[in-house]
Amino acid sequence: MSKTEFPPSIRSRPVYADLEPRPGRSHVAVADGEGAEAIVEMLDKAADRPAMLAALHILYAPGPNGTDQWDSLQALGAAQCFRAPTIPTLLPRLGRVVADAHMGTQFYLAGTEGLIGQAERDIMATGFPHAAIQKEHRGSTVRRMQCVHCKGITENVATDPFKCSHCGLWLFVRDHYSRRLAAFQGVNIDAEDKGEIPEPVVRFT
């Protein structure tokens, strides 16, 4: 699947760029779904591919749409390559990897916004500057949403409005995004006029 083009939006909405190999003493790549393609293409651009592979740790989970490109990553021959069944099972291993990382480590995130955002949040927590983490969107555009009212997170939101999976309020989808929560903001759509809920439209696929 090709790279994603997002329409212009507000300044808090994350933006993405192509992954580029950068010099470093070690490399950590985290991907889900079609993000595997971005990792493969990034390695194709490496000036010294064997050296990069020898210092590369890949963490991968299938995408929310079921896309599983594990084989293409496993075939690369990286020093370490790990497949998690889901993003929540991938994150503890990422936490372990970053806890002992040194400055000079390069981070490459690719795939859906849910995966990218949560990996970025956990890497940031070490004090590593978030602006130095590379991020490339590939695959599904479903969103990870926080309900601003009950604070519950609803994963893989496809429609706008959507029903909060925790408190049941109907929420409209904002582009306002919190790196700290790794989520977009959902706000009750019928707070002023109770029961006036527009027909949900599929905006994210």
């Binding site: 507000i10 300044r11 808090s12 909405r13 926080q146 601003v148 604070k151 904002r174 582009d175 306002h176 919190s178 790196r179 700290r180 929560l181 903001q185």
Partner: peptide
């Protein structure tokens, strides 16, 4: 506006929803 959502944002990010001014 929600502190819990906006805490940790930079100047342009937490003002992002304001129309026209940017």
């Amino acid at each position: 506006w929600s502190l819990d959502f906006d805490i940790g944002m930079n100047f342009h990010e937490w003002h992002a929803p304001v129309p026209l001014a940017h």
